[in-house]
Amino acid sequence: MDFLPMLIQIFSWVFIVLGSCLMVIGAAGMLRFADFWARLHAASVIESGGMIFLLLGMCLQANDWLIFFKLAFIGLFLFITGPAATHAVAKAALSDQSRKNSTKSAIK
């Protein structure tokens, strides 16, 4: 029965390394893209991919059910509210852009 704990260890290593890579790549993408709309997608890599993989890796490391459930709650909370916040930012940016365009055309 030594096989299962080792498998869990290997999986949690893989998840945490993958999540860390996604975090750094997403942050680099936010710095690299020149346009706001492209940056939204880079931030989305951080908020879905990196977050899910890191939390999964931590869940596998938890040696207590309580910690496991708390991590699951954090994951679920970020899973629900993260996209809502991104949606709100995008919507506000879109309305701001259209307002600026309309005032510009009004001046012309």
């Binding site: 908020e47 993260g82 991104t86 930012v89 506000a92």
Partner: peptide, 14 residues
Amino acid sequence: TLFDRVLALNAFGT
């Protein structure tokens, strides 16, 4: 712009 900052702040929070 402001929205860039809000976006970065949101990612920072996560």
